[in-house]
Amino acid sequence: MLMVQWLKPILVCEDVVKEYNGVRALDRVAFRVEEGEVVGLVGPNGAGKTTLLKVSLGILRRENGRVELLGRDPLRDPKAREKVGVVFERPNLPSAVPVHRILSYAASIKGASRDEVRRAIKLAGLEGHEWKPFTSLSAGLKQRAAIAHALVGSPSFIIADEPTSNLDPVERIRILNLIGELNRDHGITFLVSSHILPEVVRIASKIVIMNRGKVVKSGTPEEVLGGLTRARIRGSDVKTLAEVIREHGFDVEVQGFSVLVKIPGLSHQPVLLEALTNAGRRGVVIYSIDFVEASIEAELMKGG
């Protein structure tokens, strides 16, 4: 017997239009986030990702279209945000207040218990730093505090706007792993924006590519990343080379004496160069770099 399971829509955006002083920041954007998914919202700077996230939360008004967050319009009904956690691009919380107190008040606003604060601190890996004022934390800990803040109130959905920006590679991987764990082990649905595609690919079950306020392409990572830029790199120690590049968030395949690296776009080439510099520091000599094919840039151009 064929079993059909309907996924519960967490976020529905239909024909969403947002303008700033006559300039369209979102142009008839439509996409859905279903329960249990990790949706990666990818696009270059200025694509409209942050605007879309804020419109989805009801923080920004829309000129047209429909937004339904957990079955309610967030613009009209603030209860839509009750079970939603948010990690903003700049992790800012009231600066002088100890993180634990901020989380306690956030819990109180969301109708959650103090136990949930302890749980959120533990889940976000903030233990030992929770009594420090937010302003005194390092960038990585601020991000963790922002994640703990989003986790308070047992959210079923977390919106994270560039959660790994301004973090070092090690901290980036930690945060991405944390998102993956929270989705897998706690069933939290995520909408994560980023301009670094390989990062999103690590965790996303669905990818939405935006450019100039429009959704250019969406689907599973395999569907979206069908024909990405690839670089074939030859080096003296292929194993170490592959390891270092992998550490920088790229998908790597070792093929004989070379490694094949998936690069989502031209904007990621600096990251790859950084990876190669680090490989050089570990004693790897790079013999050649050949770019194989490019199609995601073409996808983005179609959107414009």
Binding site: P78, A80, R81, F88, R90, N92, A106
Partner: peptide, 13 residues
């Protein structure tokens, strides 16, 4: 500093 957005992300009108 965009802290106002944190306040606006709470379930408060």
């Amino acid at each position: 500093q965009q802290i106002i957005e944190v306040y606006m992300s709470y379930p408060i009108s």
